[in-house]
Computed example of a mutant assay.
Amino acid sequence: MSFENKFKNQVRSLYYKLMLAFGLIGFAVFGFIYIALNPSVFSKKPTETIIVELPELANEIKDGVHIVTGFVDDEGLTEVIQNCTNCHSAKLVTQNRMSKEGWIATIRWMQETQNLWDLGNQEETIVNYLATNYAPQNKGRRDNLTDIEWYVLEE
């Protein structure tokens, strides 16, 4: 590459860098002017409490299942909804199966590591609900297939 071409490339590079610098400086200056003329941009605005009423579907039970959460309708359902679904999805509960001791151990773990509050006198109701409706099952991934018409493959 000739000296003349190197010089042109360096001048072009310097030109682009200067344009970028002037553009950033101009943007910053206009930003400061805007903030000076509009000081409320960074002031905290008062927040208001918005109360949202849940539709009737929120409490609907169909075929023994709470429609919104998928929880089984049984004694303790309300307590489980109020205490479990504040922090995580109902799916996290319904996909697990544990004994009473397992649910208690899980609650203790959440209290020690996940900031779960003391459940007080509701703990027994919650654990009984979970141990009754989400207890371990002795089955595989799915039920055995039944009423199948078998056929022989021919070669």
Results as ranks from 00 to 15, higher is better:
residue 1 M to K: 09
residue 3 F to Y: 13
residue 4 E to P: 00
residue 5 N to D: 15
residue 8 K to M: 05
residue 8 K to F: 06
residue 11 V to H: 04
residue 13 S to D: 11
residue 16 Y to E: 09
residue 17 K to E: 09
residue 18 L to V: 13
residue 19 M to I: 14
residue 20 L to Q: 07
residue 20 L to S: 08
residue 22 F to G: 11
residue 24 L to S: 09
residue 24 L to H: 04
residue 26 G to Q: 06
residue 28 A to C: 14
residue 28 A to M: 13
residue 31 G to R: 07
residue 31 G to V: 05
residue 31 G to Y: 08
residue 33 I to S: 07
residue 34 Y to S: 07
residue 36 A to L: 09
residue 37 L to F: 12
residue 37 L to R: 11
residue 39 P to R: 03
residue 39 P to H: 03
residue 39 P to M: 04
residue 41 V to T: 09
residue 42 F to Q: 05
residue 42 F to A: 06
residue 42 F to K: 06
residue 47 T to M: 12
residue 48 E to R: 11
residue 49 T to N: 10
residue 50 I to E: 10
residue 50 I to N: 07
residue 50 I to G: 04
residue 50 I to C: 05
residue 52 V to C: 07
residue 55 P to M: 04
residue 55 P to Q: 07
residue 57 L to N: 06
residue 57 L to K: 11
residue 58 A to F: 13
residue 58 A to V: 04
residue 59 N to E: 15
residue 60 E to Q: 12
residue 60 E to K: 13
residue 64 G to W: 02
residue 67 I to T: 11
residue 67 I to K: 08
residue 67 I to P: 01
residue 69 T to K: 00
residue 69 T to L: 02
residue 71 F to Y: 01
residue 71 F to Q: 02
residue 74 D to M: 01
residue 76 G to T: 05
residue 76 G to K: 02
residue 77 L to A: 02
residue 77 L to H: 02
residue 79 E to T: 07
residue 79 E to Y: 06
residue 79 E to H: 07
residue 79 E to D: 13
residue 81 I to K: 03
residue 81 I to Q: 00
residue 82 Q to P: 02
residue 84 C to S: 00
residue 86 N to C: 14
residue 87 C to V: 07
residue 87 C to Y: 08
residue 87 C to Q: 06
residue 88 H to C: 06
residue 90 A to C: 00
residue 91 K to W: 08
residue 91 K to V: 09
residue 92 L to R: 13
residue 93 V to N: 01
residue 95 Q to W: 06
residue 96 N to C: 12
residue 97 R to T: 06
residue 97 R to E: 08
residue 98 M to D: 02
residue 100 K to Q: 11
residue 101 E to N: 10
residue 101 E to A: 15
residue 103 W to D: 01
residue 104 I to Q: 08
residue 106 T to I: 04
residue 106 T to M: 14
residue 106 T to H: 13
residue 110 M to S: 10
residue 111 Q to F: 03
residue 111 Q to Y: 01
residue 111 Q to I: 03
residue 113 T to L: 10
residue 114 Q to F: 10
residue 114 Q to V: 07
residue 122 Q to S: 15
residue 122 Q to R: 14
residue 124 E to I: 06
residue 126 I to K: 02
residue 127 V to H: 01
residue 128 N to Y: 03
residue 129 Y to P: 02
residue 129 Y to T: 00
residue 129 Y to M: 03
residue 130 L to Q: 00
residue 131 A to Y: 00
residue 132 T to W: 04
residue 137 Q to T: 15
residue 138 N to A: 10
residue 138 N to M: 09
residue 138 N to W: 05
residue 140 G to I: 04
residue 141 R to F: 15
residue 142 R to W: 14
residue 142 R to C: 08
residue 143 D to V: 11
residue 144 N to V: 10
residue 145 L to H: 07
residue 145 L to Y: 11
residue 145 L to Q: 11
residue 147 D to S: 08
residue 147 D to E: 10
residue 148 I to L: 14
residue 148 I to P: 01
residue 149 E to R: 12
residue 149 E to A: 13
residue 150 W to Q: 10
residue 151 Y to R: 13
residue 152 V to K: 12
residue 153 L to M: 12
residue 154 E to Y: 08
